[in-house]
Amino acid sequence: MGLQSSGHLPRITIVALTLQALLLLTASAVAQDTASAPELQPVNADQVLELVRGHDDGPVLVNMWATWCKPCREEMPDLLKLYQVHRENGFKLLLVSADFTRQKDKAAEFLGSLGVNFQTYLKDQKDNEFINAIDPDWSGALPFSVLFAKDGSVIRTWEGMLTYEEVDDLLTR
């Protein structure tokens, strides 16, 4: 059977367009699966605290994490849920990775796999200075989180995993 036209387009054109559409859909799906979050921006402790002070819309949760830290990975879905639920009220989630610089792409991939599409950060300062400037009571163990009120004062800190309920309770009082 020879090529026949179907309406205004030849059948081969329709097949080609259909294949092209399928390829594009497949490529899009793959890109979604492997999407990275925006490249992590290097920061020191002063810059982290400046980002907190510069956010006037509501509370800020600063979370120090690393890809190699199992409890950090485990609590990340709770952090992202908090962000989804409370961002309309001005809540900001500030993720700071303590991964080594050579691991920053891996960190972006991990965040991307969880759908993170906002700016996150990479610790770029000597540990001792960074830790003491963020919180003198932080020993250095990960994960570590600080919840700042809208006025920049500290509401609570967590050395170790936090839970969604703990933060949600503080944000909805």
Binding site: D127, N132, G140
Partner: peptide
């Protein structure tokens, strides 16, 4: 002094 580390 302090350093980042893996929690015990």
């Amino acid at each position: 002094t302090k350093s980042v580390g893996c929690s015990i």
